[in-house]
Amino acid sequence: MALKLKLNGTERTVDAEPGTPLLWVIRDELKLTGTKFGCGVASCGACTVHVDGEPTRSCLTFVEDVVDAEITTIEGLDGRIADAVQQAWVELDVVQCGYCQSGQVMSAVGLLTGNARPSVEDINDYMAGNACRCATYQRIRAGIQRASEILEA
């Protein structure tokens, strides 16, 4: 059935059955592939998008539940917090394989939006649901701290 979504600031009409995870609408229907499929059970965070600004696992979010929400994917991410995170990610070469990193960046932006100067504990707590099999965690932590510095400057 046709559904209207507000995605990355524009209205998109998609053809999807109720019960379809937002992840697959974004990836297969809208061809926005920055949002990744990692586990399908909300335990890795690779599929993280923002729903009304809140980091949300798109693999367990039904498309019909977000028709009234503002959805942002990595492709539509912008603003000074996003810029600071992405700048820090490049400065520190956080990535390895990179497959989880869209989700890491989406979560990191969510963290810094609500907490401009997170402690190590804050970071570890907030980012606990974003798995990285390459174990880039130390750099993710440093990247968030660096982004926080950039934002303060």
């Binding site: 926005l32 592939t33 920055g34 992405q86 490049v90 070469d93 497959y99």
Partner: peptide, 17 residues
């Protein structure tokens, strides 16, 4: 490959359509 992996532009085989 840092920038493309931090902004979602990197294309993995899973991303092919």
């Amino acid at each position: 490959d840092s920038a493309i992996k931090g902004n979602g532009q990197a294309k993995f085989a899973m991303d092919l359509h």
